[in-house]
């Protein structure tokens, strides 16, 4: 198992290097940073001077090495638009995005999994049918439409929840949280629901189809034949067997939550990384874009790594592959 972990960590590092490379190319070849930084009437000598100062005359590989070294230290240069270090900007925006994503993921799991189990077990009840129809809406409506719809209902018509911003935040060190004030909670509900709805319905449908699959297996029939209670059969035996695919999808989806949050953050003017990224795109703010790219890749890679390790916790067959191969 240790070998497997090391192998996966190594693969993750490789992926990060490739992504960093892509980000670096974007950073360097979209335009000449020197042109951006100096005016039209600078002399060629001054340009060379700056080029040298910035290390832009070094060979490509050296520059890339420096970019990676800086990125590892969390330095991504200076934002063109805001003239501040990108690392600071991201650190400011990250709590907002992570809190939004975390709450969405929790909502998606807390509602998605039990509803999936319910509809999987009570296949033909009308409540299941209703849930499935509603979930179809969740899968098919685009996030921004749901967001705007929710704003229209709860912010414009009923006026009970704010339509933009984070409301009240409390600073804990460098982290600013919405979870400690009523206004913060009010502000995060709509974007979190918007962001989670798609994932929730996806998880619901996945858990349901996996449950239907597992309920047909012999070991479930045998568990019933042993007279185990419904609760033990459905949750102890069936649900746990659906977990491997569910963990995979949930893991990938938390990654997409971070990515999808661009749209939700834009709709709700949520001051997170996604919103920062959209603004950066509008301004061709390459350092911010590159940093965002690397950040998202890092989140995906980390989640994948955790997912792979969770398989071991859930499925003993993976743990013992080596023993089986050795004929034990």
């Amino acid at each position: 198992m240790l070998a497997y972990v090391i192998q996966r960590v190594f693969q993750s590092l490789l992926v990060m290097v490739v992504v960093a490379f892509a980000a670096f190319i974007v950073f360097n070849f979209v335009g000449d940073p020197v042109d951006n930084m100096l005016g039209q009437e600078t002399s060629a000598e001054e340009r060379e001077e700056l080029r040298k100062d910035l290390g832009l005359d070094d060979p490509f590989i050296v520059q890339f090495g420096r970019f990676v070294t800086n990125a590892v230290h969390g330095e991504f240069g200076i934002s063109y638009r805001l003239q501040r270090p990108v690392a600071d900007l991201i650190a400011e925006r990250m709590p907002a995005t992570l809190e939004l994503v975390a709450l969405s993921a929790v909502l998606a799991l807390v509602f998605g999994v039990p509803l999936g189990v319910f509809t999987g077990i009570n296949r033909s009840s009308w409540i299941s049918q209703l849930i499935l129809i509603v979930s179809l809406v969740g899968v098919s409506l685009p996030t921004f439409v749901i967001g705007i719809l929710l704003i229209y209902i709860f912010a414009v018509n009923m006026g009970v929840l704010p339509s933009f911003g984070r409301g009240g935040v409390v600073e804990i060190g460098w982290w600013s949280t919405s979870f400690l004030t009523v206004a913060g909670w009010q502000a995060i509900i709509l974007p979190a629901v918007t962001l989670s709805l798609f994932q929730m319905t996806l998880i619901l449908r996945l858990v349901r189809s996996e449950m239907l699959e597992v309920m047909r297996t012999d070991y479930i029939k045998f568990a019933r034949a042993r007279g185990l209670t419904d609760r033990a059969v459905n949750f102890g035996h069936a649900l746990r067997n659906t977990l491997v695919p569910v963990i995979t999808i949930v893991g990938l989806n938390i990654g997409s939550l971070v990515a999808f949050s661009i749209i939700t953050e834009t709709v709700f003017q949520w001051p997170g990384m996604g919103f920062l990224f959209i603004q950066a795109v509008g301004f061709a703010d390459v350092p911010v874009m590159a940093a965002y790219l690397v950040m998202i890749a890092f989140v995906f890679v980390m989640i994948n790594l955790i997912v792979d390790l969770l398989y071991f916790v859930v499925d003993p067959r993976l743990r013992a592959d080596k023993a089986v191969a050795a004929g034990n």
Binding site: T217, D218, Y219, K221, F222, A223, A225, R226, G227, L228, H237, R240, N241, V314, D315, P316, R317
Partner: peptide, 18 residues
């Protein structure tokens, strides 16, 4: 289970693998 036990055909799939 208590008064009537059952044994099925395929032992490879009758036991919960987890």
């Amino acid at each position: 289970g208590a008064k009537i036990g059952a044994i099925f055909q395929d032992p490879l799939t009758s036991l919960n693998p987890l």
